[in-house]
Write a protein that binds this DNA or RNA. Structure first.
Lengths: 200, 200, 200, 200
DNA sequence: CATGAATGAGCATTCATTCAT
DNA sequence: GATGAATGAATGCTCATTCAT
């Protein structure tokens, strides 16, 4: 759809219905035969992406069994989406943070289904005993999605690059083990003790 | 400043210079004696928040020495900012993701300084040996900020509440230990083995 | 076109797009379906006049053969234009002296074609031997157009009248013979000789 | 005066009182202690130029006696003015063609005095018998000034150059003798006779 | 179904000018 | 006499949306 292009390139507010029509090769007023409003057009664009992506995700997840593989896959999939469709993803990230209730009513479900896979994988990890039983599942999910999107911010603005695989590895590692040094290992240098000078 | 209020309430695009002037009790054109453009007005508002907040942060950090306390403090501080100024924070989060280079040139430095504290605390943890030496520092920072902001999204939209303290505890815990169950403990139920049925 | 009227009456700067729309019986924004900018509207108005006038000129010139007749015709035609469309001509004279390169790019060609007829007639006169072979053709053209326009200035401001025929005769005469008294004739009174008292 | 600079550079409409004040190092509202309105400021600028130039002109004319020398001098003087102060002259030429009666009331006299010298010189030529007695004096004056200004138009727009001396010579020549070939001389090629083919 | 003309409400921005201090 | 803050009215331009044909 051309609307996807236009919104992706210029953002929702800067995009104009006229431009969408122009690129579609139709006349301006004709757009309103298909959608009732510009906002609805946006909802269509985003909904379509979610539908498409959810389908793909679910298809590929069928072949992935272990919790860890699923997490790794979902993390990488989200990173790939950001890398491959930066404009569209910037649009989604931006417009999903809107008060527009009518809009959220439309895409909210799809978004939930999209994030549900990750949440579900985490829950499975808890259930299976691989993960701590008191893990705040939603918060974990938020840290993954939020972390990925925060990390990709610069790339979404057109600066720098985005390495899907290594980032996915790092996120998965942090997710599983946290930042703390492995008990026996790392204290090569020395540990801080009370009474040390302030850090700055 | 009234501009802060207006932008916070209505968002940048929906806010009008006329409304800002009206609330300030002056005439529309008069706004342009102080700023050259609406965008510059936004930059002022955001800059001021960062300046103010950076000062506060740095002041309080002086009394906090341990890495863990610092992380906990910075996480809670960001959560508090979101809880106490949801409109403004939504504005900042949204507008910081703009291609507008001139704008980012102004607030970029302040934003970097704001996030630097967290990054620095993490680096100290690595240096002291508390954290693994190969920790991807920036990514950790992104997961914290991104996670917090993702978690607060619903609250920023006016739905639900935001529990600063418990969320900060949870994030800190996840950050330190990850999601994995403590070695001896949790596998009460059972672990998944290869060959198990798919999770969905 | 109503834009022609409005610009002619009030001048470009004082004219407003709103006024043009009002007189056209449409809404202001609608003007921008046909032109991209106010300046472009001006360009249209002037271009149209030049196109129309060039066509007329070229049509009538086909029946005029002698150099002298052509000059006389072109001089009178320009005077007639000034007399019959003073507002529009004042607009053209004024706006043609603008630095606006984009504007000149549009109407420049048409203006050149308009003045070319006069220049060409002069060149023919040179070629045929009727005019001195070292005549500075462009300067002659400038003196004709400039002279006519200077002469009409007061009329263009709404004061006095403009006699096309007699002015055309006089200009043609001056153009051909200059101001100098015919050799044998006029020195009835006396000629000044060196040593005479100053003139003022 | 700085107003002269500002008006010369940007033209009357584009110039702002604020800019004039800024360059003068005073505060905006302070300009209104000296002039009552922006238009009056313009009148001052132009008046001053005319006063200054009239004085210079009259001073130098005292030493020039012959009609021809005077004409040549005045033509060259006007060309020099255009060459040396293109911005200011463009301003004057443009703004003198304004309906603003109040404005013309102020500078009209000075302008008349400026052009009077040329007109007077021509009248002297008529009186002395050097020029034909039926010469339309004002029209001759218009052709000189108009011709010069038309010729300088491109230069005033910032394109090309302006050769004062040779242009003055050419104008003077045309003025005196017209374009017609000297009786005996030029018909080297041949003269056109009735019945010749059309010129184009 | 499609066209394209029209609408109307809005909005950022400019600027000459005034006036209390 | 100067300052600088304030005014107010205007203006070019945009755009989602409607509707007769």
């Amino acid at each position: 759809m051309v609307a996807e292009q236009v919104f992706s390139e210029m953002g929702y507010d800067s995009a104009t219905v006229a431009e969408v029509a122009r690129r579609a090769g139709v006349v301006e007023g004709n757009v309103y035969r298909y959608v009732k409003t510009k906002r609805e057009l946006l909802a269509h664009v985003i909904s379509e992406w979610y539908s498409r992506t959810n389908a793909e995700l679910e298809n590929e997840l069928r072949h992935i069994t272990s919790v860890r593989s699923r997490l790794r896959f979902l993390i990488a999939a989200h990173l790939r989406a950001l890398r491959d469709s930066p404009g569209l993803m910037r649009l989604i990230i931006r417009e999903l943070r809107t008060s527009d209730t009518e809009f959220r009513a439309i895409v909210g479900k799809l978004n939930q289904r999209y994030t549900w896979h990750l949440r579900h994988a985490i829950e499975c990890g808890v259930e299976s005993g691989e993960f701590g039983r008191d893990i705040p599942v939603r918060l974990v999910r938020d840290m993954i999605f939020g972390g990925i999107e925060h990390h990709a911010t610069r790339y979404l603005m057109g600066e720098g690059s985005l390495d899907v695989e290594s980032t996915a590895d790092q996120i998965l590692f942090l997710l599983l083990h946290g930042v703390q040094a492995p008990p026996g290992a790392g204290n090569a240098r020395r540990s801080r003790k009370p009474g040390d000078k302030p850090l700055t």
